[in-house]
Design a protein around this nucleic acid. Sequence first.
RNA 1: CGGGAUGUGGCCCAGCCUGGUAGGGCACUGCGUUCGGGACGCAGGAGUCGCGCGUUCAAAUCGCGCCAUCCCGACCA
Length: 670
Amino acid sequence: MWALRDRSCDVDEADGEGPCRLHHPLEGCPDGLRRERSRRGGGGRCRNRRRAGIRVSLPEGEGDPQGPGGGVRHGPVDGNRCARRTGRRLTQGGSMRYSELFLPTGREVPSDAELASHQLMIRAGMIRKLTSGIYSYLPMGYRVIRKVEQIVREEMNRAGAQELFMPMVQPAELWQESGRWVHYGRELLRFRDRHEREYCLGPTHEEVITDLVRNEIKTYRQLPRNLYQIQTKFRDEIRPRFGVMRCREFAMKDAYSFDANEAGAEESYRKMFEAYGRIFRRCGLDFRAVEADSGSIGGSYSHEFMVMADSGEDAVVFCTACDYAANLEKAEIAPPEKTPSVDEARLPLEEVHTPGVRTIEEVCAFLSVTPREVVKTLIFNADGKPAAILVRGDHDVNEIKVKNVLGCDELELAMDDMILDVTGSPRGFAGAVGIRARVIADYSLINMTHCVMGANREDYHLKNASPERDFSVSAYADLRVVRAGDPCPRCAAPVRMARGIEVGHVFKLGTKYSRSMRAVYLDAAGKEQTMVMGCYGIGIGRTVAAAIEQSHDDQGIVWPMTLAPYAVIITPVNSNEETLARASESLYQALSARGVEVLLDDRDERAGVKFKDADLIGIPLRITVGPKKLAEGRVELRIRRTGEVRMLPLGEAVDGVSDLIRAELERIGG
RNA sequence: CGGGAUGUGGCCCAGCCUGGUAGGGCACUGCGUUCGGGACGCAGGAGUCGCGCGUUCAAAUCGCGCCAUCCCGACCA
């Protein structure tokens, strides 16, 4: 019976329509909620009160959830919605007694967790690993997940997107149609059903949504549309790591826009870009939108939303003067001016004997030159055809740029046999002079003359090699990895580097999928047109991990108010003392009635244990109820982030805490 | 896929080199004392020592094979 009601409760919340009608009886059931239930004619009794066996006396007017100021606005941006309702929707049961919570905290750092966020999520009882890259979310973790989801929902809806829900299991045919059955690689988990039909677990949903839309949308009148879901994705990562940061099964919000034309698609993209900014701001994150490569999703351009953190897997380049910012993979370098007069190629080309000298370091040492004077020649295998890529000795090749310039699908460094084939020598002596491959040089070669490079002959290098005179270059392009201090491609000021965690990615897809899968419509002239698409992802779990990565200390997590599983924890320092328990209970009831998410630490534990746990799980505010202060009619309010402690008269505690929460939510949401 | 490491009660780890009765801390149960920053005492419960094969009178320990996990790299939304 309760299972049934519980489910209806879930559905209500999941579809974003209003609060749940009934709370699970085992969850905290403070006055405000119970009153609401009876108002709605629901059943269920509050066992907690019976168990607690304490008569509660509330301060005047505290018990009425309908009263003025009743409820805290959890969605500060969502101004039109009933504040109390919004507050409820952001909770999974409002308040809770610690003694009944499934919250296994740990003192030990798990041996296989490297990142602070990973360690803390395990220690704070948020997640448990089932198997490599696959995690369960425990109640405390799931509450935070739901907070992020809810913020995402509100902002997506606000931006005009509609929520739907698509299957995780997808037929091979759809992927064959888009071409990705072949191109996606081993990351796509494939399997067969009992009829030997092929399927995959969806790593993303472009195929499914495009199929859906092409079948249902036929006319320009039905456009534009933006559809999104929050779904579990599966990507069979080669190497899952860092807990939920890079795992195989994970929750993702993915949205897809369909427009009649380019201009519409641009507008959809802009709306999503702005919605993402609002989402991550509301999550309390220090983030940055950067230009990105669109990778295997494809499409014309994209931005990543990066949470700045030293532990981030991605390197981000940004300008110290203008607002240019890009993923290192994508970061550009402006073409240099050609300065012809400086150093004409005068000295003759010279071949020198360099036995066993292969690497740049060895060459420099042997010939007493610096890496800047050496040209590195790398032979790539691009879809089976060789290409010679030239960069300066002190630079690194950016393979993504090479791939984009060559326009190939597969790119890898050539094997020894291909090197021998195009250079006529073993690995380590490749150069551009006389090479049997297309030669593409990095911009940095434009003004180089008299450089050192391999001679395409074992144990020999060339000196004074100069482009044009000694070898031809079919194209100059931006091919190298940007370094700190390089000039910004927009304004030429030096760029800086930082690390980031990619929590969101917006792509302008163009017609990549709509063309291959024939998602077309009739325009006003009755002419068939191809829809222009965009897609937009947010890693939900990763956003939670990123928030922890960015906000923790040596005691544990420090949640921003918008993501905190509970806003306040009430800690009676000794649960056996009746007066402390009664005052705590009373505060608990009063705060709950205000719509504040409150956790009452009613466990029979020593104060130290409670303090440590409260800090570990990162509840932003703690009300400590101790004997001496209580005798003076006061309680202590401690702010997790700063450690600041304020004394509050008992009668002002509820107002004081509510005001603080409201102020904090407004600060983050504003 | 290449390189490295690890697998011993729920968690962290010792024991392995030098084969012989499976250990500690945390957690858990009971009782007592304690009670404002992860208490103490006493008494308990809990382990196929990753799996398999082999060597041996005897294997957590030695050998071989496999599996899993983690780290570095390759690779990559």
